[in-house]
């Protein structure tokens, strides 16, 4: 792997957009495009990244970029790739940047289809754990306990009662060539994975956790730190799936305090110590499973 802070392209491909200060999603898109380079053809569905980047006449991508329908990230990428191939074009990478809602909910059918066909595209899900563009509603990747505008925290319901859907393993279960999880808190790891995924002939998928200061209720300069802490406290993990096997990139020997991660975010403000304890237990159960089933080596 050659890409690092020193070798990363100086050129910018996503700038002048209207994302909130400290937006994790915008950082993920910016860095991924710097890794892939000018021949990236970006497909971005309805969601924050298209809403902030494509307001005619202020168009914010230096490379080719197109908005897809909300459900149609993967299918539009399929078409772009098929068209370019049929026209005899070479040296390009079709890459998608879709939110958690666009990926795990409305777009999962098209994504599954593209992986099944092994279309030569790289799909990146920037996961900010809710429908942010429409005002912070619950998606199937919203974590347990989080308050959103559709899972309010009140006396009867205390935020989202479902645990996060496991997109990484759902994607891996397709027998995809390559997929990985990442976090913008571990940028070098993310860059390595983008570089690797972009070099794959066939479908590849990266699920990058990308906090949203606006929706999570954190300070704008805390975004990267929080994205690091979620891995350190074990509520998210960095892993890869390739040639049918899982690999854990980071196994914290000791997890940092879940309560610290939870308490610094407004979306979890309502949670009691008991509920935080429950989240900690969920984490431990998850890691038992990870260690046993997938990442024992």
């Amino acid at each position: 792997m050659s890409v690092n802070v020193n070798t990363l392209r100086e050129d910018e491909y996503f700038f002048g957009h209207k994302a909130c200060a400290g937006c994790g999603g915008a950082l993920a898109v910016r860095i991924a495009l710097k890794v892939i380079g000018p021949n990236a053809i970006a497909t971005i569905p309805a969601g924050c990244m298209s809403a902030v980047g494509f307001n005619f006449p202020q168009l914010c991508f230096k490379n080719n970029a197109i908005i897809s329908t909300f459900a149609g990230t993967a299918s539009m990428m399929t078409g772009i790739e098929a068209g370019l191939k049929a026209l005899g074009k070479k040296d390009y990478k079709v890459v998608g940047f879709a939110g958690d809602g666009g990926t795990a909910d409305i777009g999962i059918q098209a994504l599954s289809g593209a992986i099944d066909r092994n279309d030569d595209v790289l799909y990146i899900c920037y996961d900010n754990e809710a429908y942010m563009n429409t005002g912070i509603q619950k998606s199937s990747l919203t974590p347990f306990g989080a308050r959103t505008t559709t899972t309010p925290a009140g006396r009867n319901i205390k935020g989202n009662q479902k645990v996060k859907k496991n997109m990484f393993e759902i994607v891996a279960a397709h027998g995809i060539r390559y997929c990985a999880t990442a976090s913008i808190g571990y940028l070098q790891d993310f860059m390595n994975k983008v570089e690797k995924a972009a070099s794959i002939k066939g479908t590849s998928y990266i699920h990058v956790l990308a906090p949203c200061p606006t929706g999570w209720g954190i300070k704008t300069d805390e975004c990267v730190e929080v994205a690091k802490e979620v891995v350190d406290c074990g509520l998210w993990y960095l892993a890869e799936y390739e040639h049918g096997t899982y690999r854990l990139n980071r196994r914290p020997r000791e997890f940092t305090d879940v309560a610290h991660y939870i308490r610094r975010q407004d979306r979890f403000k309502h949670l009691s110590d008991t509920e935080i304890k429950e989240i900690t237990l969920q984490r431990d159960a998850k890691w038992q499973l990870l260690d046993k089933q997938y990442f024992s080596k």
Binding site: S68, T69, G72, S75, M76, I80, A82, G83, A110, R117
Partner: peptide, 23 residues
């Protein structure tokens, strides 16, 4: 290139993608 899409939404979405590169 005959794409075996998994739905009609994807059929037309993919067609738009292909047309958007001049195919």
């Amino acid at each position: 290139d005959f794409i075996h899409v998994e739905s009609e939404h994807s059929a037309l979405s993919a067609a738009i993608g292909a047309s958007a590169v001049g195919a």
